[in-house]
Amino acid sequence: MTIGAERGEIAEIGSPVNLVPAQVDRRAPWRWTTASMVVAALLLALGNGTGLSEWADDLPPGPVAAALQEPLHAWAAFTVRWHQDRPARWLRSQWMQARKARFGNEQPDAAGAADSTTAP
């Protein structure tokens, strides 16, 4: 993602985020960044309510976890009812299918598999 090493110098000088300056850089940068992050957070909350609820379940037991679990479970149930979780579930199922694909009978989960087949 960065340049420098081809020219032979130790490339610690400079940052991988040095861009060519532009006028737009100074146009309400904090508002633009914050709005981007808020929109992303809201869309994630809409599209991954189940993930939020699972996160609350994994929190160490205590008053914070207890206060969060009920509303987040209710939110997750709401998103499921309105099928907002469908894209995330579909993506997950595709990924799980890719994980199950095999060339032959390889067993990555087995402790040791080479000794279970006949040596050539």
């Binding site: 067993q107 598999a113 080479a114």
Partner: peptide, 10 residues
């Protein structure tokens, strides 16, 4: 020993 018992397509 060049059998594959581990490498999956993913």
């Amino acid at each position: 020993d060049w059998r594959n018992t581990l490498v999956t397509p993913l």
